[in-house]
Amino acid sequence: MELTVYLAGEIHSSWRDEVKSLVKEKNLPLTFVSPQTEHDLSDDIGEKVLGEQPSKYYRDDAASSINNLRTQVLMNKADIVIALFGEEYKQWNTAMDATTAINLGKPLILVRPEKLIHPLKEISQKANVVTASVEQAMEVIEYIYQ
């Protein structure tokens, strides 16, 4: 049985590569989807598709509508969502994706460091599983196959 996993979370580190490496080591039948991880493309897609916008507000609005459509399609196809909250970057998109997963009834594994326990207490309570590391999240998924 192959599962599709949506990897929600910040795009500026290599955590997704770490997940894929662990999956390869464990030989798990998983396919991955995620938000657009090419930052410039994510910011530019609205004008790339719809043409130049009159201001930064409309530029962001155009890009957001296309990025949100992409996220909705891919998350709807996912069997599981892993939402990683890192320590370095603001996590608005991760919070939005985790909440979307909860609202869609998607199984959600939340990965968050100890220092974010308090700020993420409500989302953590709604997640199916909360882990402190990507390794623990992968152990949870591995358990599905045991």
Score class of each variant (00 low, 15 high):
Met1Glu: 15
Thr4Ser: 12
His12Val: 07
His12Trp: 15
Trp15Cys: 14
Arg16His: 08
Glu18Cys: 09
Val19Gly: 00
Val19Arg: 02
Lys24Gly: 11
Lys24Glu: 12
Lys26Asp: 08
Pro29Ile: 00
Leu30Phe: 15
Thr31Phe: 11
Phe32Ile: 10
Thr37Ala: 13
Asp40Arg: 03
Ser42Gln: 09
Ser42Ile: 03
Asp43Leu: 01
Asp44Gly: 07
Lys48Met: 15
Lys48Pro: 04
Gln53Glu: 07
Gln53Phe: 00
Pro54Ala: 08
Ile66Val: 13
Asn67Ile: 05
Arg70Tyr: 04
Arg70Lys: 11
Arg70Ile: 02
Gln72Trp: 10
Leu74Gly: 01
Leu74Pro: 09
Met75Arg: 00
Met75Pro: 12
Lys77Ser: 13
Asp79Phe: 03
Val81Lys: 03
Lys90Tyr: 09
Thr94Ser: 11
Ala95His: 12
Ala98Arg: 02
Thr99Met: 13
Thr100Pro: 00
Ile102Tyr: 11
Asn103Gln: 01
Asn103Val: 00
Leu104Thr: 06
Pro107Ser: 06
Leu110Ser: 03
Glu114Pro: 09
Leu116Ala: 05
Ile117Tyr: 07
Pro119Cys: 05
Lys121Met: 09
Glu122Ala: 15
Glu122Trp: 13
Ser124Lys: 02
Gln125Cys: 03
Gln125Ile: 07
Val129Arg: 00
Val130Gln: 10
Ala132Gln: 11
Ser133Ile: 12
Ala137Met: 15
Glu139Asn: 09
Glu139Lys: 15
Val140Gly: 04
Val140Tyr: 06
Tyr143Val: 11
Tyr145His: 10
